[in-house]
Design a protein around this nucleic acid. Structure first.
Lengths: 208, 208, 208, 208
DNA sequence: ACATGCGGGACGCCCCGTTCGT
DNA sequence: ACGAACGGGGCGTCCCGCATGT
């Protein structure tokens, strides 16, 4: 029975993610989620004892996803700035391809009272990861003298989040990845010693 | 009759702004707004025929506020980069002091289906204003050669929005203004001639 | 001041009649009535202290109208059956031309709890009038032997009301008058001595 | 699960029918219906997704009831006039004994905007059935020469509806059946060859 | 006298998140 | 895993006073 239960649970998570990311926490209803999954509310409540728990689990999954992205970048031995570019590109791809990530992000972004406390964690970790990467870059002498690493890592994450938000707010056909491609060099240029530094890295997007 | 009615209408707008900015569009209830204003729902509905209209009016006010800030900066003869700094600082002050602005921003940020279409306008205008200021800076020779002005103005707004979001998401005691003070120099450094020297080249995008 | 007030009061009655006859008592709102009359609710409530009173006044007017029709027929010296035909034709014309009558009828027909007691009066009077006319016909020897005059007068009113109802229920383009023209001879034929008697009278409708 | 749910659904229908037939569509509230059924509104809305649907279902049931009465009369080989009498008597009994029929009738009679279109069907069918029965009578030579069958069938239904309406409008203790008993012979007498024909049939009401 | 603008409650319909018997 | 039921709001509307002009 476990395999089937697991399958339906995963299906529920996915459907719920879609509803949450489409309409937000409040406007997404347990009824609609169950209906969209082809199940009854009873089944839904068997797997997730409340709406809160369901949302929390989605946020958790997104968190895990993001953590692993962070880890894999930190584990590699890329140059610091390259790592940052790599990280943002990976996150961008997750956002555009993975509904759970999109949903988790939206759930965190809306500050739903019931979900308080869970929201800020990913951002903190991203900032910390950036900080590590910037230190690495600094150690390799890639950065301008006197750069405030704390501020810089925050700025990176701010710019990323803001770009992501603008992408959805402005609508249109431009994707997050395209937008990042255009603005990232400008941002990083403020950090480097010599702009146009040959190593200003922009990773090729691996084929999804 | 007008003065009192105007007073209660304004009071309603303020209270509503507080509720909206505290809980978001869906979670803020007309009942609570009326109650918090010391009125009944009847009175509330006398002034605003629906929740949508109420929210729309708040968004409109915030929009007007932001427009006037933009105009005043554009009208002055500051240097371009100074204008950008000034603009962001003005907006930041509005956000931290004016509940209507905070509410309008949150209402625009949440993509509530009922409020669609109204949301993207302020961002577009901010981007356009930045663009004008950057052109001015470029004409005065303050900017690096080959800077993509479109991308730069978008980046400015993205960074601003992201910073604002991070401020609320991370909680804590740091204000938006403080955060901007730390971050803005870094961002602008990427645009100017000197700290990062001429001509940061931007790698050609391979066709995705 | 009185003449103007009277004019607006009459205008209100007319507008209200239209709303009532179009949507019924509950669905017609004081707001809409005032709006349709180009006034505020305050003005409406100045003339009619409640919705009930407003409806009651309309019913009263319709009642008066119907009474006068009855009186004028009773006062004339027509033959009894001709009087019945005349009466029904007059009522039919009132219904199709006078909104107050239409409204009063609908308000009586719906048994609105708040308007209880007022509704049955016109019907009782019509029946009584029919009864008088039938007695007159009987005295002139126009009627079949053994005709139950009570039952007959009730039947006349029933048939009239039912025809009126069918006209609105079936929709279409057939008017109440046309429908009555077709069925009345059949009905009266049941009362007369010789069925299909050539003289079964049907007054020509005077040009409205 | 089905039996209990079916029971409560039926109970809801009955209670709703009572409320509708007592107060009409608008004045009957979902709250009161639920309360009178000893349930919560949630339960009510589980079975009927809207007030409209609830009313429509009642109308549908009444319609079915009436259809079956019509069919059974048409299927029998009674004489035409006897069939008409039988039909009206059956409908009368349904009205006085079956709340669903009473409610359906009232819901159809009030022209509620939300229920438009559903209302006229039963009347059309009754008229058609009468028409068939009259043709049958005509074929057997029971009818007067030159009788307009269309008009006659309409008149029958008009008289029936009017009588039914008068019964409720005049209040009192007289039942619809009693009233019909008094009135029907008069009506039919207008159709037959020899007025006052002894055989004008009136079926004894079987003990309900 | 006549009309308005503003506000008060109560209630209507509907839906939501949730539990419980089966 | 489901079908059925529960409460508690949510938004909107209704009928109606009361203070204030004209």
């Amino acid at each position: 029975m476990q395999p089937r239960a697991l399958a339906t649970k995963e299906s529920l998570l996915l459907v719920a993610a879609e509803e949450f990311s489409a309409h937000g926490y409040r406007a997404a209803s347990m009824r609609d989620i169950a209906k969209a999954a082809g199940l009854t509310q009873g089944a839904l409540y068997f797997h997730f004892s409340s709406k809160q728990k369901l949302a929390a689990e989605i946020i958790g999954l997104q968190h895990a996803e993001s953590i692993s992205a962070v880890q894999s970048v930190l584990a590699s031995d890329m140059s610091g700035l390259e790592g940052i570019a790599r990280l943002s590109s990976t996150l961008a791809r997750q956002i555009s391809t993975n509904p759970l990530v999109r949903a988790g992000l939206r759930l965190s972004t809306e500050s739903v009272d019931e979900l308080a406390g869970v929201s800020s964690r990913p951002y903190r970790e991203w900032i910390a990861a950036c900080r590590v990467l910037l230190e690495r870059a600094s150690a390799r002498g890639e950065l301008r003298d006197g750069l405030d690493l704390d501020a810089a890592s925050e700025l990176v994450i701010s710019a990323f989040s803001g770009t992501q938000y603008l992408t959805v707010a402005l609508g249109g056909t431009v994707t997050l990845e395209e937008r990042l491609d255009r603005v990232w060099p400008l941002l990083l240029a403020g950090f480097t010693k010599e702009p146009g530094h040959p190593s200003t890295p922009r990773p090729a997007h691996e084929p999804q």
